[in-house]
Every structure is written in C-alpha cells, then in structure tokens.
Design a protein around this nucleic acid. Sequence first.
DNA 1: ACCATTATTGACAGCGCTACCATCGGATTG
DNA 2: CAATCCGATGGTAGCGCTGTCAATAATGGT
Lengths: 343, 343
Amino acid sequence: MVRKQTRSGKVRLTEVAKLAGVSPITASRFFRNPDALSLSKRERVESAVKELGYVPNLAARALASHRTEVIGVVIPSLTNSVFADVLRGVYDSSEGSRYSIQLANTRYSILQEERLLRLFRAQKPAGLIVTGINQTAESRAILESMNCPVTQIMEIGDSPVDMMVGFSHYDAAFAAISHILEQGYRRTGFLGARMDPRVQRRFDGYRDAMKAAFLFDPNLVVTTSMPTAVTLGGALFADLLAKAPDIDAVFCVNDDLALGVLFECQRRQISVPRDLAIVGFNDLEFMAAAVPSLTSVRTNRYEMGRHAVTMVIDAIEGRRPEQPVLDLGFQLMVRESSTPHGA
Amino acid sequence: MVRKQTRSGKVRLTEVAKLAGVSPITASRFFRNPDALSLSKRERVESAVKELGYVPNLAARALASHRTEVIGVVIPSLTNSVFADVLRGVYDSSEGSRYSIQLANTRYSILQEERLLRLFRAQKPAGLIVTGINQTAESRAILESMNCPVTQIMEIGDSPVDMMVGFSHYDAAFAAISHILEQGYRRTGFLGARMDPRVQRRFDGYRDAMKAAFLFDPNLVVTTSMPTAVTLGGALFADLLAKAPDIDAVFCVNDDLALGVLFECQRRQISVPRDLAIVGFNDLEFMAAAVPSLTSVRTNRYEMGRHAVTMVIDAIEGRRPEQPVLDLGFQLMVRESSTPHGA
DNA sequence: ACCATTATTGACAGCGCTACCATCGGATTG
DNA sequence: CAATCCGATGGTAGCGCTGTCAATAATGGT
C-alpha cells in the first residue's frame, strides 16, 4: 500500500493533510512544532505521513521559511587525521538531528576561508563551525553578519565570535616541555611543520617553558611550512641534529613527526629514551603501540566535533549554553620515549 | 557601491534583470545556459550581477527546477584514512564546479547505507557516489530509480549500477603474495581486521595465491571483525604466532596492521625481513619511512575520488564516458621488509 | 522579395511549503 | 455571567526561481 503511493509520484504535504483531515498548515506544524498540535491531530497526521510515505521537500521548506537545516563546517585540511577525528564527532552528533553537515576545506588559507564563508552566507545556514580563531577581519565580519550560531573549534581564545570549544595549545605544549625538563633533559629541540596558528602557539608554549628554565636556544628550533609527514619528521630531525648535535630530547608538534623521528633514531642507532627523548602531540593511536611507546599530548578531537555540533544545535533551538567557551583540555600521556628511568 | 546593495538585503534575480534591462527569465538563463544569450545581453546581465552582488537562491532554484546541484557521497567510514584520501580527491574535484558535496557515513552497515540512500533520493541529488559493489538489492533498486548518474568507487566488478572507478583487491593481494613467494618465503600468514567486502576479496587473493603454490593453510589466517588499529596489528600477530610459530611472512590487509606487526617484532626481537617479511596494503605515507621500510600495495585513492566526481559531473552534463568502468590499478611497492637479499 | 527556419526573448503560472494573522472554542477570572 | 486570555487551527499570500510555450527578430534559401 505504501509502495503504490510512493511510486505514483510525489506526495505533497497537502495530500497528507487531506488524508489526515486537517489543513496543510497543521500538517506543516506537525514537523516543526508537534507539541502545538492536539494529540488527536498529531496522531492522525503521523499515520497519514507514514501511510503515504511522505518526504518533505527541503527546497520548498527552505524557500518558504528563509532558513535551512544545514550546519556549515569549515576546516583547513582533509588530510590531517586530526580533522578526521573532529569530523567523526561532527557527523556522529549530527546524525539523528534534523540538521545536515556541509563541509568546506580552506587548505590552510584564510583567504579561501573568507571565500567559503561568503558562499555559506548565501546559503543561510542554520549554524556554522569554523576552525581556529585567526580569521581575517572580513571573515569575522561575515560571521557576525550571518545571524546564526557560530562555534570556533580546536582552540580557545579571548574574543569568541559566538561560542568556542577547544583547548589551549600553549598550555599543552608548556606542559609537555615541563614534563621533559622534569625528566632531566636539558637540550630539548622543537620540530614543527605546517606552522599554522595553532602550531605557532605550541611553539610559544615550548619557547616560554624553555625560557623559564633558562634553556631556550634558537638553535634547537627547526620548522618548515611544508605539510607534515612521517618522512618529514626524519628529515627535520636530521637538520636539527646537524644544528645541535648535543640535543637530548625532541618535542614534535604532531605525532607524525614524532614517528618519523623515532624511525630516524632507529636508523641512526640512537637509543630512545636513553640518548634522546621524543614527545609528540595529539596522541594518535600508533603512539602507544610504538617501540618504545611514544609520549604525547592527548587532545580530545572527537569530543570537540561532538560538542561543537551540539552547542550549535542547542543555540539554534534557543538553548544557548551559559558558558560560551568550552575548554576540553588535554592529557599528557607519559610513555617510554620520555622516561629514561621508568615511569 | 557593491557594499550598499549587499547590505541592504537580498538582491533577487528580478533586480538584476531590471538593472540589465532584460526579463527575469533571460537573467535566469544567464546562469543556466549563457550561450543561449546574445553577447550584448550576456554582458549586461553579467555586469548587473556583479554590480548588485547578486547571489542565487539555491532553494528557490531547486524548488522551481526540481533539481539540485548536490552530489551525494556515501562512504563506510570517516576514521579510516583511506577514505580521507578519497574525500580529498572528491572535494578537490568538486571545487570550481557548480556542484556541492553531501557526505554520508554508513559505518560499514549496508542497512544504514540503504537508509541513507533513501534520504538522498528525497533530496533528488544531481549525482551519487557510493562505496563498493555490495549494496543490498533494495539499495540497488533505489540507486537505479534515482535517475541520476551513479559511480561506485573503491573496487570494480561486473555489474555496475552505472559507472565504476576502482581496482581489483583480489589482484592486488594476489600480486602481493606472489611477490612474497618469489622472495622465498613459504609460510605467509594473513592478518585481517574489519572484514568488509573489499578486505574479503583481498583474502580471496591471498588464499588463491597460496593455494596455487600449494602453501595454503588455514592456521596461517587470523582475522577479526574489529576495526583496524596499529595496536590490533600487534595483537593479531601475537595470535598468529601462537597458532603458527613457524611463519616466515605476514600479509596485512592494511598498513596500520603492518605497522603494528613491525612494532611487535621489535618488541620480540624478531628480525625483519630476515626472520619475517611484512607486507601491508594501501601504502600510507609512513610505510616508506619505517625502519625497515615496509612493502605495501599502493592504491590510488586520491585519484579515485577525483575521477569519481569528474565522471559523475560529466555524466550529469551529458558527457557520459564511453568506458563506464575505470580500473585505476595498483602498484606493488617493494621495500626492505620483504626483500631479505636486497631489492 | 517571400517564406521557412532558427536564434532570442518574454509572459505566465506555478514548484511545495510556511509566515502571518485571523478565528474559534473553551478555560479562567472577578 | 461577561470579560479576558490562551491554545489550537485555518486562510491567504507569497518565498525566488524556472519550465513551458508563445512571440518576435534574424537568417537563409530560392
């Protein structure tokens, strides 16, 4: 029975209303605000919807209501597995809700970001999730003019456009370096790739922690604007060794680099952690499996994605969080690669 | 000047038409089929669009035209970095086109896939990209009823719904095993996680290659339905060693497992490749960086994403490829982990 | 020069839904 | 019991765009 109607062509809301014996507008309300209907009508509409296999026409809905049920997500990279985790959280949270996700990729270009935001504005999204806090002035203006909830993710800062969920990269790096220093290492190198704003803040944390111990030395720092890669970790480490042969520890801005360093050490017969400590960032799954296991800073990427969507949806539906900035923190995962005397 | 109009509110096509001195429908045609306009009108409309900062209302367009410019992409996982690469290709190809991507995640459930396809049907996408060739009968029926170009990706098979781009997982695994056997290894184990259809076909390739050499032994096979992970690679390898202590090689269905095996070998002081050969699948970036470097089967994931989108867009616009099935092949990347006597 | 044919253009009528406001009955109040 | 209010429901009028088809201008062939 269902089948026949479905096949015969489109079922409109009018048909549903007719079958349920209500006006189209009442049937419409069934979807947008079911609580406003009396129980009897609600049931009749519901069964009519089921019987006819009605599927709302989203375009018509958007046109008539001047709203969409799309949440835009702007991230800088699809390659970086960090964002894969965030996206998993985003999609997990959006499933089951009425909202769908529209993804856009800036490739780490703030101009591209501006362009994408302009595109999004034309689509009138119900909410928006953007990465980081370093938007251009124009981008911020667009965001503020959009008149929809916005969540900035990955890091937190002082002047949210609207809401934020993230953590302090500075603090995380500072904590990692403090741990290294506590273990007795003095000459800790810094390896950085793709120096985006968040990586830059990790560097600041490194620098300040080292300076606080009067151990900062520019020769210990090797960075590149190239995108990160395991191979690159080995290469940067080789550069670092050339500049500062006496290093006894390396802080890598991400785990790929750290793995590359570990492999390079194996190649050069450098004993980890005896001759060299290695600390990474993000705590990807392989860090615990490596031999020796690699210390890292765990970041709650999946939760970031989940919360970002939840916060946006809540705000869309009028339930604004009392705390617009959510700090998800980080955990220092101390493992063999930085504990020469055991953990 | 642009600014004032933009800010003042919505600019509709009517306004553009008025400024250009043409009828609204002519202005509309400027977007859908500019070649149908005379040069003078085209130029007038174009400059009016620019001057007013006109942005089309997609909802109205979709409602009036009964079409959208959305390409649906259905993949089984966001975690698996294999799909991250595919998605990169997908997004790269779609940028610059008029089409936008709508992503959906089945979590390896063909029932979820069915549900998602039903959702997509309601949205009338312009094209669709789905993963694999193992859809349910119902899913196939939906796909066929959708009346839009469909590309199946990741693998190829005999009865495409419409188009296909992928490679033979069977052949790839067969080639990998042939290489291992050529190197003189006899007892090659098989490690498999998340035995989805494509992984199953890799197993078939392994099994047949081993059988052809009269070396197949069920004790050499360890699989699990758990999702893949580096740690899991180590665990599965431990199981395998327990079942068959005399193995001299391991074929892993993906690179994460292979890396886990390598680490486990380091832990157990098993020399690779002298005591054990390791071969992975996909050729993620770290495989070349590992010590020893790890042999793998390179699959062209980024290109798969790119081609899938290109093929779908071409088909939407009436340029159907003469060859609906595109085999992107694979490359065996022979490295230290499987060449005891040097490469 | 005339007619057939093709390139351009425009008028009209919706697409399917919801915003807005009006209505109506019943509960609440003094 | 009238006045008031509120919750539930319906009528009307578009949202901004494009499909369809008719009208017109331009072109070419004889």
